[in-house]
Amino acid sequence: MRVYPDQLARQLAPLPQCCLIFGDDPWLCEQSRAAVQNEARRQGFEERIQLIQETGFSWNDLYEQWQAMSLFSSRRIIELTLPQAKPGTDGSAMLQTLMQMDNPDVLLILTGPKLAAEQTKSKWFKSLDTKGIYVPCTTPEGSQFQRWLDGRIQHYGLSLARDPREMLFALYEGNLLAADQALQLLQLLSPNDPISCEQLEQYFEDQSRFSVFQLTDAMLNNQQDKAQHILSQLKSEGVAMPIILWSLFKELAVLLQLKTALNNRQSLQSLWSKLRIWDKRKPIYQNALNRLELQHIETLLAGASAIELKLKQQGIEDWTGFSHLSILFDPRAHQKLAHIVLDQ
């Protein structure tokens, strides 16, 4: 059963046979694991065994721990870390076997990186999911991050008006660990009084973390301030320009195919599937298609090619040019800015 981190506490009484905690957000993974451990201790699981699937690991060790009598208590927690989230043939068979051997005195916690869709369809995952709960720990974005942030502000009993909340959102989006640490610090510095933007400026620096995919999504949605902010963060984090260009070319190529089809009065239905654009992302592309004409997309492709050429021939990462290119996702900017060629 899939349970999201903010719902986890309500699903732990009684404890399931196993808990699968997988994801790419370290704060959510740690908080979810701690929540399970705390509830397990409350229910009498006092002994904790930790195993890691690494070189030399034997799946018989897990089997023996499952069968062994506890030396210190009647109930035990077995934590198994799968660094690659791939138990392999032997591990898959062992996990399925254990799930057929009900043991109310053992709680199995599996942890690892984010699972791909095909992994959640595997036999080992389904056997565990049937007997337990699956907690996907993916970093919330946009409005989901705002809800998470509001919840943590309420958790710490802080008083923040709209402006400082929006500042925290901009500072820490994509970095839950830093955001939570910041809120803990605010609780110490100003536990009772309202917190202003001026105080936040004194206390914190920009610690948001973004991916190149969030950058291109912001561009497609014409979220100019957000796109420029993400681009600045990617530059400060040392993200290589070729990676950003790869993501941009990919999205522009998709846009070009979709816009060409529309101009030829073709249905996009078959293209959505062919280009692997799922329902969740269709509004993002539709937004860009409604806003941009074919010539705008061609201009963007030409601009990206110029930046790539400068990088390959001169070794120059033209961040200013990329910022300029981002602005051109707004068709109103084309009339005054499209003709400008930026030299470094």
Rank of each mutant, 00 (worst) to 15 (best):
L262S: 04
L262R: 12
N263D: 13
N263M: 08
N263Q: 12
N264Q: 13
N264T: 06
R265F: 06
R265K: 12
R265P: 04
R265T: 12
Q266F: 10
S267Q: 12
L268Q: 04
L268W: 09
Q269W: 01
Q269F: 05
Q269A: 13
Q269M: 07
S270H: 13
L271Q: 04
W272L: 14
W272A: 12
W272G: 02
W272M: 11
W272I: 12
S273W: 07
S273T: 11
K274I: 04
L275S: 02
L275W: 03
R276Y: 04
W278P: 02
D279E: 11
D279Q: 13
D279K: 13
D279L: 08
K280F: 12
R281K: 15
R281A: 11
R281L: 03
K282M: 13
K282D: 11
P283G: 10
P283L: 10
I284Y: 00
I284E: 00
Y285M: 03
Y285V: 11
Q286K: 09
A288Y: 09
L289M: 01
L289G: 10
L289Q: 06
L292N: 04
L292P: 02
E293C: 12
E293N: 11
E293H: 15
L294K: 06
L294E: 05
Q295H: 11
H296F: 09
H296T: 09
H296K: 02
I297E: 09
I297K: 08
I297R: 04
I297C: 07
I297P: 01
E298D: 09
E298R: 14
T299K: 08
T299W: 05
T299V: 11
L300I: 14
L300V: 05
L301Y: 04
L301E: 03
L301F: 05
A302D: 12
A302K: 13
A302Q: 13
A302W: 10
G303M: 08
G303K: 15
G303V: 09
A304Y: 07
S305P: 08
S305W: 07
A306L: 03
I307P: 05
E308P: 01
E308T: 05
L309N: 05
L309S: 05
K310Y: 00
K310T: 03
K310H: 00
K310D: 00
L311W: 10
K312M: 04
K312W: 06
Q313M: 12
Q313C: 08
Q314C: 03
G315R: 02
G315N: 01
